[in-house]
């Protein structure tokens, strides 16, 4: 630390600075950058965490290709696409929230946060509909799992039935559904944590906590929310789309 800095700290009280500038930082810029640097380090560990799941998915898809193709055909592209739309829109509303916070627009921030919360719940709601269908069709891994729909496929909703799978191949679909629930489940857990933090921020925003320039929390939460969107950007094509044609 330079001497001049030490002097500057010793002279505290003689000069003005925002109340939220901590004493161990030279400037607000340094304080903000330190905070988002820490946030990014956390997000990198998250990338490694989801990266492990993606790697497992790619390897098993390679091994049990026919089973993974048939199993992925049971997912609804329509619901998946709507959820992608919902999540990308929520990323946009959160980005607008960050902009409102940066430009000290309290009302704009409050409404951006509300929109993001509503879209977050919409995503989880649609996910619940999809999970419910998995339970009904006995596609949830575990004791209730059944390969019936793959060994004796039936046509439904005007769609032609998939080709029947031999029993040993059909049994591998359970691996697909294990990975499906692990990946979308961990993603949903991140959404739930995110919505909790959003509700917290909403209360703070209404109290005016972000109206004086202390918005590092909003900015770094924005990074987290966009990361969750980022994971879904990969989950959607890998789980729903690539085996479709």
């Amino acid at each position: 630390m330079s001497d001049s800095h030490a002097v500057a700290v010793a002279e505290h009280g003689a000069h003005e600075h925002p109340a939220h500038l901590r004493h161990h930082f030279v400037s607000l810029e340094q304080q903000d950058e330190t905070a988002s640097f820490g946030m990014w380090l956390f997000l990198l560990t998250e990338i490694m965490f989801f990266g492990g799941l993606f790697t497992a998915y790619l390897i098993y898809r390679n091994w049990y290709y026919p089973a993974f193709v048939s199993a992925s055909h049971t997912l609804s592209i329509t619901l998946g696409a709507i959820n992608t739309l919902v999540l990308i829109t929520s990323s946009f509303t959160m980005a607008m929230g960050v902009w409102c916070a940066e430009t000290k627009k309290q009302k704009g921030l409050i409404w951006s946060l509300i929109a993001t919360i509503v879209l977050g719940f919409a995503f989880l709601g649609i996910k619940t509909v999809e999970y419910k269908e998995k339970f009904e069709k006995h596609h949830v891994p575990g004791s209730s799992f059944s390969i019936q729909s793959f060994v004796h496929p039936v046509a439904e909703d005007g769609k032609a039935a998939d080709k029947a799978l031999p029993a040993d191949t059909a049994a591998r679909t359970e691996v697909y559904f294990s990975l499906y629930f692990a990946m979308t489940g961990m993603h949903a857990v991140h959404m739930i944590v995110g919505i909790g933090l959003l509700l917290m921020m909403l209360v703070q925003a209404i109290r005016g906590a972000y109206s004086h320039g202390n918005i590092a929390f909003v900015e770094n939460f924005g990074l987290y929310w966009h990361f969750v969107d980022l994971v879904w950007i990969f989950l959607f094509p890998l789980l729903y789309l690539i085996s479709r044609h």
Partner: peptide, 15 residues
């Protein structure tokens, strides 16, 4: 902001 504090900024270009 004091002069000393301003000096502390010199050479340290934070983003």
């Amino acid at each position: 902001m004091s002069e000393n504090h301003a000096e502390a900024h010199e050479g340290e270009h934070f983003h």
